[in-house]
Simulated assay, not measured.
Amino acid sequence: MFAKEHYSGTKEENYRLVIKQLSSLLEGETDTIANLANASALLNQFLSDINWVGFYLLQSDELVLGPFQGLPACVRIPVGKGVCGTAAQRMETIRVEDVHAFPGHIACDAASQSEIVIPLINNDVLIGVLDIDSPSKSRFDETDQRFLEELVQVLVHYID
């Protein structure tokens, strides 16, 4: 779902527009932190019914908090722990309809009810993850997953 004041097309059309806007924002910029900051701000502005969106970057064997929009968050997450760490370990997207039912979920914000985590992978190397939380259960569906994975593919070309 997208914030109604910004987009009026179908969900798919809205995602395509956000991906196009992200590409324009990143064009010519090579700074990883700046690009991740703009990506999180763009997603926060246009996705509705979310309470946190941001990035964790891989450092050694843990994910370290990067640019984000939302309340203060967990700073370090071991690979393999929680939704973010599990997505990083498996190097695959994890969509959780009810975070309280996810074994080992790390509760950084008690308001979060559902979550989607998309790994940032470039040339088969894990860079980090995109984490988006919602205060509603079952917020993220297959369409969200497909287009957020596409958005991440665009983004990884502008970070290292």
Rank of each mutant, 00 (worst) to 15 (best):
H105I: 13
P135M: 08
A110G: 00
E115G: 05
V152W: 01
V129L: 07
K4N: 14
E29W: 06
G9K: 13
P67I: 04
T10Q: 10
I159W: 02
G70P: 09
G128W: 02
K81M: 12
E142T: 12
K11H: 09
D144L: 08
H6L: 15
D98S: 08
E62C: 09
K137D: 06
F68E: 04
E13W: 11
S136H: 09
N38Y: 01
L42S: 08
E5Y: 10
C74V: 15
F68H: 14
L17F: 08
G28A: 12
N14P: 09
S23R: 06
S23G: 15
L151T: 00
D133G: 05
A37V: 07
F68N: 12
L63T: 01
Q59W: 03
W52V: 13
V96Y: 10
Q69I: 02
I159M: 06
S40I: 00
V129T: 11
Q153T: 08
E62R: 14
R90N: 09
A88C: 06
Q69D: 03
S60T: 10
S8H: 15
D49L: 12
H105D: 10
I50M: 06
N51K: 12
T143G: 12
F102L: 07
A73P: 06
I33Q: 03
H105P: 10
Q59K: 14
H105M: 11
H6C: 12
K137N: 12
T30F: 15
N38V: 07
V156L: 13
A107F: 02
S8T: 14
K20N: 14
G70R: 05
I116M: 10
S24L: 14
L120F: 11
V53D: 00
V152F: 05
Q21G: 05
E13I: 07
G9W: 14
D160Y: 14
G28P: 09
V79W: 07
A73T: 15
I118G: 03
F55V: 02
L155R: 01
G9E: 12
L22A: 10
L63G: 00
T86W: 01
K11A: 15
N51H: 12
F140T: 06
A37E: 05
F68K: 11
T32E: 06
W52A: 09
L36C: 02
P67C: 07
N44M: 05
D109S: 08
K20F: 11
I116C: 06
H157M: 12
S48N: 11
E142F: 12
E12W: 03
I50Y: 04
A41S: 08
D144Q: 05
D141Y: 08
M1N: 07
A37T: 15
Q69E: 13
D131T: 08
M91C: 08
P67F: 06
L148D: 04
V156M: 12
L130K: 09
N35T: 05
P67G: 09
F46T: 04
A88V: 09
G128V: 05
E62A: 05
S8D: 15
L57C: 13
Y56N: 02
